[in-house]
Each structure stands twice: as structure tokens, then as C-alpha cells.
Design a protein around this nucleic acid. Structure first.
Length: 115
RNA sequence: CAGGUCAACCGGGUGAUCGCUCCUCUGCCUGUUCAGAGGGGAGGAAAGUCCGCACUCCACAGGGCGCGGUGCUGGCUAACGGCCAGGCGGGGUAACCCGAUGGCAAGUGCAACAGAGAGGUGUAUUGCCCCAUGCCGACGUUGGCAUGGGGUGAGGGUGAAACGGCGGUGUAAGAGACCACCGGCGCGGGCAGUGAUGUUCGCGGCCAGGCAAACCCCACCGGGAGCAAGGCCAAGCAGGUACAUUGGGGCGGCCCGUCCCGCAAAAAGUACCGGGUGUGCUGCUUGACUCCAUCCGGCAACGGGUGGAGCAGAUAGAUGAUCGCCCCUUCUUCGGAAGGACAGAAUGCGGCUUACAGGUGGCCUGGAUA
RNA sequence: UGGGGAGUCGCCAAGUGGAAAGGCAUCGGACUUUGGAUCCGACAUUCGAAGGUUCGAAUCCUUCCUCCCCAG
């Protein structure tokens, strides 16, 4: 994922924490808000309770890969933050993709549904 | 083959597709953000942050006191609390391992409970011995018991620890009271060694206990803070206080010493406090570097020379995902299935410590076979 | 990343080399018709863990684990 598509500033995260709409799944939390740009930006949060640096990196990379594959089918113009919960550790890519898709539909971020 | 020990060794391989980041080159629609090509992209511990350096700022990094650290000897190193070699002590049949291993005959302090006594010229519960008195037994110039006085520290007992050991002389009983030997101590000397130390001779006095990871003494080392150090550029806000001679401030404990500013309205200046923007660029990765081959010095750690090869730089933080084949392990209904440790660079480097599936190698001991 | 601090019963905690105080909570009993209050009693052999120093360690030393705070 290229740098321009990442959320990079603490202020962005604080903004989503305050004004974002949030949807929860057992293994994942997604929060989003319009950003006024022509493209989406994504952020990933893997808190320390998930495990050591290796497991956190693993979870974050799987999430990033799933988002990369899903990205073309999402509506543009939003900042989106994904927060991994405990059960996501050790799940394969397929499961992560399925959960992500469910949440996207639920949140109304899916392109087809919006059109 | 089994058990042990050491660490100098490895830490899955390969291919395809889709991605991320950095560098170089090329292109033009000149982009902090495009396109194409080529190349680089986690570890032995990257970890814990327990030490040591480099580097940066505090003017310089000076002296004394204080504080902190280290602690057998010699060497290596940029330095170290690390490494190598050696001494001493301890463990093991051995290979080998462990040790904060200077000083308690400088001073001060500590030792609960138990015990008569726990540190000085100190102690007497039981015991042993002598004397006196009384009673009893015997009548063999002697015995027992009780009380009192005295001698004694060998035996018993307490304790983690009780003032050398063994044998003799001696004595009423005993005692380094005396003697020989042994252990240990002090002083002086010889020999071996750079030294720690070992060994040996003479003299002395008979023993001077334990704890310094107790204060402390001695020797050596250390100025403080840390890359969120520090520097540059944007944007932006809100200022306030102190400063007049014996002044204010810095060198983050204090003093000396030294440096900077100021020496008379205000302004400016210096310092401090407060408010505010922002992680945009830099520092930022090639250096006491790593590996291989070889030569020289050294027991070794290591040092020096020559030749060759290699070396990531992210910044909500890249180094990934999926699939196939091979390798290893476990389970198996023999079709196959599941799994492959510990763990992720954040200024760099040298160590230490801790975690770790599986595999490789050297050495020691025991057994078996030839 | 760097700097600093703390772990003692279920909770709050004292103890800084000689047999781990106290309060709250919990459990049992007494009092009461019952409950509350009150009174009496019980409750730490692993002081975060492992080694070491010492005759003796919660305390001193070393290493490790967990948690908290500060610096943009």
C-alpha cells in the first residue's frame, strides 16, 4: 500500500476516534469518516495485548493485504481505521478477507451497494 | 551404543504471480505524490536495556571535596563490569565447570534464640581435684553423702560459631605451664616467576575467631545530559518577569577556578517563566565494520601486512501475501493430514544476559565388538 | 527510542538483616425472635520469580518477569 493511501498523523486518528462511525465484529473493529479527498486512506491498529512485535506485524500485514485486494471495490473519499481484536491472531488471509467484506457491506462502504 | 561436557556451527531450500520501501539511470505531461529499467532490503539473538564507546549539545572538560562504579595477577582492547592466559579456593572418576577471590593483628559496628560464657585478658551449669565441718559405713592408715571454701578448663552439654591438633612431660586434678611433630600466624632471607603466588631456611610468640553483596580503608575509573541529542526551513501565537554593583547567569551536587552578558531614561541585550506550530528536511548510515584466503608476531585473546567480496535505512513505521515442488518432524484408516523453534532493524558499534524446534562437530567416562 | 519508579493476604498497606504489624473484606461462634451494629476467634510456611552473600534474607547483591509514569 502506497504511502499516500495511509493514515499518518495522530490528528487523523483522533478525528476518527471522535467523529467516525464504528462497526464491530468479533475479531475486528472498523471506523470511518469522510476525508474530503478523492481517494481513501487507511490506518491499522494492533495493540500490544495481541502479542509481541512479530505477531502484531503478521496481523497488520494480513490486514493490509486484504484491504489492498478489497480497495478497488470500495467507495472513495473516506478515512478508514481497522483495529484488530484478540481472536484475529493466527487467522489465515481468507478469513480476514471474509470478515473485511462483511464489515464493508455492513458499513455501506461497498461500491456496488452505494451505486 | 549409552551418559556427560564444550561451543567454534547452521537456523529450511527453490520457482511462479500480485504488492511495499530505498538507491541509481532513462523518459517527459518536470511530479516532496508520474512511467519504465536495473539493483539493495531483518537476527543469532535484531530482544532485555545490564555495561562500555563513538557522535551531539552544555564555552573548555581543569583541580579539590562529595557521590557512584569496579575489585586475585599479567595481558588484549577505542573502552568495558568484556575476552585470553595464569595463580588460589571449591565441585566432578574425567572432559570440564564455578568463584564480587584486595583489606576485619586502621577504626566503628553486628551476632536473634539457645547457652555458664558471643569477644576480650572474659566465663563456671554439670564435671574433675584439694581442704574444712557434719553424718553414715568399714576398721584394711580408707570409702560414700551433704554443706562451705578453693583450684581447674581436659571431658559432657548449648549454639551457625566456644580461643589450635595429636602424643608426651608435669600435676591433687589440670592447663602451651613445658617439650617434639603437624597446621596456622608474624618478621627476616634464599630460589623460581613480569606478577598473583609457589617452595625453602632461620627466628619469634604459642594462636591474634566470623561478617566488609555492614559502615569503612586502600587501589583504579567516571564532568552532565542524551539522536525525542543537536541543526535547518516553513507556518503561527501572547506575552510576562528579573538585571545597576558587594550585579545577573552558565559549566544540572558543593567549593575553587574560569567564561558570557551588563554597568544606569527608554529601546536593545542577556537570562528565566509562560504560550504556540510541526514532525517538512537533516542528523541517517562505509565504519575502532563484516566475511574469505594467505603471510608475520604472540601459548592465547589479539595486533600488523597483502588480495578479494559484501554492507537495510522505515517514520502510524517497508522487508509482505498466495500457490506449487523438494527437505525435516509427528500422526496415520497407508490414500494422506497437520506442523517447521525463539523471535522483527529505529543513531551506529563492542560485550553481557535471557529465549530457542531440529540438526552438525570436538573432547571425556563406561560398555560391547573387531 | 530514551529516562524514571513500583511489586508483601481477595483489597489498602507497615516492616530496610533476627519468629511477616494493622485496617477492610471473608468464614465460624456469642448476643438477638430475625437482621444490622457490637464482642470473641480463624485467615501469609511461594513477601513477583530464580540464583548468590550470611549462621540467618521480605530486607543486601545479580539476572529475569509484570505493571505504571515522563519526554515529540
Amino acid at each position: 500500500m502506497q504511502r499516500r493511501f495511509r493514515l499518518r498523523h495522530p490528528a487523523d486518528f483522533a478525528h476518527l476516534r471522535r467523529d467516525g462511525r464504528t462497526y464491530r465484529h468479533r475479531l475486528l473493529v472498523v471506523s470511518y469518516a469522510p476525508n474530503g479527498l478523492s481517494y481513501n486512506r487507511y490506518g491499522f491498529i494492533t495493540v500490544k495485548r495481541l502479542g509481541n512485535a512479530v505477531t502484531r506485524n503478521r496481523v497488520r500485514r494480513l490486514l493490509r493485504e486484504a484491504v489492498r485486494l478489497l480497495h478497488p471495490r470500495l467507495r472513495a473519499g473516506y478515512d478508514v481505521v481497522f483495529i484488530a481484536r484478540d481472536g484475529l491472531v493466527g487467522q489465515p488471509l481468507g478469513v480476514v478477507q471474509r470478515i473485511l467484506n462483511e464489515l464493508a457491506v455492513q458499513a455501506g462502504l461497498n461500491e456496488s451497494e452505494a451505486a
